[in-house]
Design a protein around this nucleic acid. Structure first.
Lengths: 224, 224
DNA sequence: ACCTGAACACCGTTCAAGT
DNA sequence: ACCTGAACACCGTTCAAGT
């Protein structure tokens, strides 16, 4: 066995692990170099030896969680696999709500970083297996990926708020929408009932199916 | 005319306006209370009298820009209006790239704030006019809104990077994708050519059409 | 090579004091 | 009612010094 110099040698891995734990516990504001050094029983200089800066640390934490979420394999039809991957990402964002804005940041930073390419690759492989023309692959994959991030981010909201469970949160939101000015917000008022009673996961998968239907229908033909 | 006490009286409006200008110039890191007080020739206390904190200021800046973007009216079929609203939001995010993560934050904060409800209402009204069953309204609207945010955020990336125009950026990205390991990233490699030559706006609208086709096709029927 | 910890520049926010 | 500006607590980052 390797000699253990102290309690546990510092490593990039251990730092990222601690960062994820802090983010899970208190969101993005829970991760500071003070909380991190305290948790790892070290000083800031030690962390900077392994990680160039805080942004890179956040990227690494995101990559670590997303890589785990993408490591599902439920073999089946391309459609089934897209649903499975989507749901896995959905649940990852549910468990780690700080991912939502973080993923938006990564998306808006081009193909740099490893997270966005991997997600596109994973969904895109299944899209290309759907049998639609190659010219629609990128658009179709984009639609799916953006839907997953957006819908998951929206549902992750307040899922972790202290003492408020999802059902009560939805009831509160629906009630608020019903109080809105009917002249200005007729649509939100009309869907309040549905929002109050819907199931997150089921609703999410229905959205995936809707986009899959669009890919199927609009993929080959040019629209009128 | 009203008496002008000094150069120009401070107001919430003027503060938000200055905040947008700073965000446009240097992104989110360009907006600090120092740069803001300097630009407005005042002290931090004066700003705090009009605005409760920095988060609220960012929300107000977002609301101001989005409200302007939603104030398009190009009357036509529901489909046409959805395309017009989507494109208007797309262009707003292109002009103000700091909006992308900001909108993700607002989405992930439930129906609080006025931005998300207004966007949902605007798109949702047109969705409900499409003639699909009411049970699919919320899902369909969500899919559209998330696609718009995600796709716009992705395209806003680096659109403002100094000295690099969009075409060159796409060329660089496509080249990078072609360098990827073919075993691990077959999909990204296969679409590199398409990415290199596509037109942002056209691609964006194609995605909207794809989702509209899905709404149309999957809206009424239950899937197999 | 890896870690320590004091120090620095900067940030959001507060508040007693002014008009 | 509205503004001033010094002060505070906190943050990311650096770096000379240790092992």
């Amino acid at each position: 066995m390797a000699p253990r110099t102290r309690a546990e040698a510092l490593s990039r891995e251990r730092i990222v692990e601690a960062a994820v734990a802090l983010l899970d516990a208190d969101g993005e504001r829970g991760l500071t170099f003070r909380t991190l050094t305290e948790r790892l029983a070290t000083g800031p200089g030690a962390i900077y030896w392994h990680v160039p800066n805080k942004g890179a640390l956040l990227d690494a934490a995101t990559a670590s969680v997303i890589a785990a979420a993408l490591a599902v394999d439920a073999p089946g039809s391309p459609q089934d696999e897209i649903r499975a991957i989507g749901l896995s990402l959905f649940e990852a964002i549910e468990r780690h709500p700080w991912l939502a804005p973080q993923l938006a940041l990564q998306l808006s930073r081009s193909p740099q970083g490893s997270v966005t390419p991997r997600i596109f690759e994973s969904i895109g492989q299944r899209v290309s297996a759907l049998g639609v023309p190659e010219t629609s692959w990128f658009t179709a994959t984009s639609a799916l990926v953006h839907y997953v991030f957006g819908a998951a981010g929206q549902n992750a909201a307040n899922s972790q708020v202290l003492g408020v469970d999802r059902a009560e949160f939805l009831r509160t939101a629906a009630n608020a929408w019903e109080e809105l000015d009917p002249a200005e917000f007729p649509f939100l008022r009309s869907i309040a009932d549905e929002v109050r009673e819907h199931d997150d996961r089921e609703q999410f998968l229905t959205g995936i199916d809707l986009i899959l239907a669009g890919i199927d229908g609009a993929g080959g033909s040019t629209r009128p």
